[in-house]
Design a protein around this nucleic acid. Structure first.
Lengths: 138, 138
DNA sequence: GTAAACTATAGAGTGTACTCTAAGGCAAGC
DNA sequence: GCTTGCCTTAGAGTACACTCTATAGTTTAC
């Protein structure tokens, strides 16, 4: 498929897809050139972009991704290094999930507070006081 | 407390803390000036920075944060708008958590694959084949 | 066969969030 | 009183991830 089609199928712009190629995030499994020099993408390119999106959302830089997504055969890293990296990422993601639970707690507090502010100002004051008190002991 | 102390207590640099002030993320609850023009931070500044860190890790920009963290009294947004924003953020965080579960799935697959590559190459091949097959039906 | 719509490249520009430099003032220890 | 180190500011510089412009070639529809 051509670049515009890939862009539409993945939600990236054609600009971005070319940029990712320049950054070394694709190889011959994903793109080849036609006789007219147009890029021809395989279905694996879709998978690759989905994977990039996933890893990016967990805070991976493009440089890090480039390293990690390389084919096993041509990777600079040994298999042991890769396993180490994956384990590290797994614990990072698990930590992020915990953080998100904390954030949910904060957001729910804010929601309750803002709702009280409208319906029950006295309760809102009490919440604020309780919050300040809970932070007094660190 | 002075800026260096706040920096050490929160893990931000003094540069960043001043930068955040320029961006309007603090108010008189958090910083005041001494006679010598030095910034004097309250304990609330620590809380504020922790909150900034949290919200930032869920993809909030500093501009968005500025809006949201403003005191109820001087906020540009109505309470209703704030409640809407909070609810929106809550569903965003819940979605992110789901995404992270997916990523954990991917990472665990990668870990199993890489381990197999060392100990049981036949299994690794089978995994790769199964993976490609699972993507054939979208 | 020509206009519109797509493709290509190199390289410039943008937005976000820092990060640092330069030049000067203030504070604490010797 | 002087050095060392922290504080101040304005503004420059950096890193990252795009995002677009200019220019040119190719394909498609009429």
């Amino acid at each position: 498929m051509k670049i515009q089609e890939l862009a539409e199928k993945t939600g990236f712009t054609a600009y971005t897809i070319r940029f990712y190629e320049k950054e070394g995030l694709f190889d011959s499994r994903h793109v080849r050139r036609e006789d007219n020099n147009y890029r021809n993408y395989s279905d694996e390119a879709i998978e690759r972009l989905r994977l990039i999106k996933k890893f990016q959302s967990m805070g991976c830089s493009l440089v890090e991704l480039k390293d990690v997504l390389q084919d096993v055969n041509e990777s600079k890293r040994t298999n042991e290094q890769m396993i180490e990296w994956i384990q590290h990422k797994i614990s990072e993601v698990e930590q992020k999930k915990d953080e998100y639970d904390q954030i949910l707690g904060t957001l729910n507090w804010m929601l309750t507070y803002r709702t009280a502010l409208m319906n029950d100002p006295q309760k809102a004051d009490a919440m604020l006081a309780a919050f300040k008190h809970s932070n007094a002991g660190h």
